[in-house]
């Protein structure tokens, strides 16, 4: 699971570089996210703009990553492609996360 990470003053951007977050890589994704979010800013934006496919295992891994960060810190999602967005909408998980159509939109709203 390849991430491209950029840390700014108040937030960290984690851009997923793999096109799929599915059952084959869900555990790997969870572990890699733990490394990226265990320390650093309280706000993490997960940039999913390169991800074309996610299944329920991938969705569960993103939920687990948010839970790992605890109550005091926030995980926002940005750049959902159509098929990824649909999984979040259908399962109503879009109501649990702060979801932004683009990374720039997330940065504008959450402040960089």
């Amino acid at each position: 699971m390849r991430f491209d990470t950029k840390t700014e003053e108040r937030l960290r951007i984690v851009s997923v570089q793999d096109p799929r977050i599915d059952a084959a890589v869900a555990i790997e994704f969870k572990d890699a996210m733990r490394v990226e979010t265990d320390s650093g800013p309280d706000l993490v934006i997960l940039d999913l703009s390169n991800v074309e496919f996610i299944d329920s295992s991938g969705l569960g891994a993103i939920v687990a990553a948010m839970k790992n960060m605890g109550q005091a810190r926030k995980l926002a999602l940005a750049g959902l492609t159509p098929n990824v967005e649909r999984v979040f909408t259908l399962t109503r998980m879009d109501s649990v996360f702060n979801v932004f159509p683009t990374l720039q939109g997330a940065l504008d709203e959450l402040g960089s």
């Binding site: 329920s56 969705l59 605890g70 109550q71 999984v87 649990v96």
Partner: peptide, 14 residues
């Protein structure tokens, strides 16, 4: 609550 959010069980729903 955050800790009780489901991490699975979406498959058959989908």
């Amino acid at each position: 609550e955050l800790d009780d959010l489901p991490e699975g069980g979406f498959g058959w729903f989908l």
